[in-house]
Design a protein around this nucleic acid. Sequence first.
DNA 1: CGCCGCCTTGACCACCATCAAGTGGAGTGG
DNA 2: CCACTCCACTTGATGGTGGTCAAGGCGGCG
Lengths: 283, 283
Amino acid sequence: VPEVGAMRLDEPEHSATERRSIIMKSIGHSGGNPAILKLNQAGTLEERDLSKLSAITCTSYLIDGKRDIIQQGEPPKDVHLMMSGLACRYKMLPDGSRSIMALLVPGDFCDLHVAILGHMDHGIGTLAPSRVVDIPREIIDDLTSNEPRITRTLWWATLVDEAILREWLVSMGRRRAMERVAHLLCELEVRLKTVHLSEGGSFELPINQETLADMLGMSLVHVNRMLQKLSKDRLISISGKTVTIHDRAALWDFAGFDPGYLHLSRHSLAALVDVGCVAEASA
Amino acid sequence: VPEVGAMRLDEPEHSATERRSIIMKSIGHSGGNPAILKLNQAGTLEERDLSKLSAITCTSYLIDGKRDIIQQGEPPKDVHLMMSGLACRYKMLPDGSRSIMALLVPGDFCDLHVAILGHMDHGIGTLAPSRVVDIPREIIDDLTSNEPRITRTLWWATLVDEAILREWLVSMGRRRAMERVAHLLCELEVRLKTVHLSEGGSFELPINQETLADMLGMSLVHVNRMLQKLSKDRLISISGKTVTIHDRAALWDFAGFDPGYLHLSRHSLAALVDVGCVAEASA
DNA sequence: CGCCGCCTTGACCACCATCAAGTGGAGTGG
DNA sequence: CCACTCCACTTGATGGTGGTCAAGGCGGCG
């Protein structure tokens, strides 16, 4: 099965034990740069902004899975940007349970909070081996002072993050377990697609079901059952760590998913609906 | 019982039927201006910033309860600022249920989103008669161009909003109903206290239990039972629309409440712990 | 007086957490 | 190569939390 369309979020071949080891220079600018692909959704960047962003994000490092990027309580330092892999915002509760409040995919910023807040009220950690860019605060300051289009775009990104957070809250509060799982998968497909990490309805999700449970506010056991039920209903299928959405329309409908809150460009939105899934094999 | 300490969030005496009727000029600057009281928490404003903010917020209008300030789908226009009353961010779901994703108390901004996002992905509506300031976009633009301290403070405010949102998500996902109710009351007391709308553990909460249910992702019936149980356990008491916290330490402990996420000034935080509640009548 | 909004209470049972045990694959060491 | 461990996923059984339905109380207001 060559080139199934599913791309890898992690890069296990490099997942060495060193924490900040391999430094890599990316080549093109827009080509495979997820940050640029994402920020382009805002629709305000011009060619020269892209090169500037490209330059800023050219030096990244690898970090293992299940490592903290920033711990709760720490004062925020540099801004971090995900280039590959997967991370999350999370809090540990007194009773030992974990609550994951956001999933960070390639192209997402970890904390534009910069130094405005005195301490992190939550931690950020990787879920899979990831490639991260550290952006020194001075560069952010420079951008916000001298690059109004980029500044506006960064604003846009934080607003979208907040919108996603709100939608997760809706899911938690008013959707039942199975819809909640479905809704998350819908969102992920769309978010990953905008950074070219999903094709033909398939994407890699290199996390275990316990992590999924902590994102969904459910128990591990129930997540398992709901995934099985979604598979049995022919809405999705899962093999290994890759998720495939069979009937996007049906899944969106079932989950009550409306991509409006992601504030995508018209172009991306259209691409979504057009290219369809693997099959229209709805029962 | 003169001057019980509970202050009014609404102003029913003025709650006329006209939507945008009475225009009022506030007198002092810091005195009773909730926006200034709140923004001062960021700790970066100086005297001249305060007067500037004071000037901006001097013209407000009344709006009835249960009215939309902005509807979902609309393009955002002016920024709105709550001066009194109570409002919320909300979404209506296809099945007719409502999800409230944020509570806006005096001093909160409704949507610094300004024009960056093309459309509102949620609505904002009043829950009680409220006094609101419309801030034209040009003024925001002016501030962000010419007033770095104020800009930074507005940033701070949106970051705190986001932190609150995250904490609500934690509540929804990982706290049981009773803790969730308790946690919300803890948060409200603190937030209202910073704008001088709570004293001696008492504050006004002019909303019905159905609204509370929509905020907590619960059913009306269960909210009712949980409130009764909290009362029976002597943690709180409710009479009419005023809530009183009897044993703050016990309530915080029960709810797992840690005010860190509100990013208050050291000063405000200290004031909280010191002044205590009405009594230490813990069972 | 009667209506309406809101709170209250009871009965019932579904959804989902929890506990417990078992399967299967990947990696490791003998 | 086979035992062994470990981790992640599975499956079943059980019961509690909390949703839903339904009815009744109670104050405010036209």
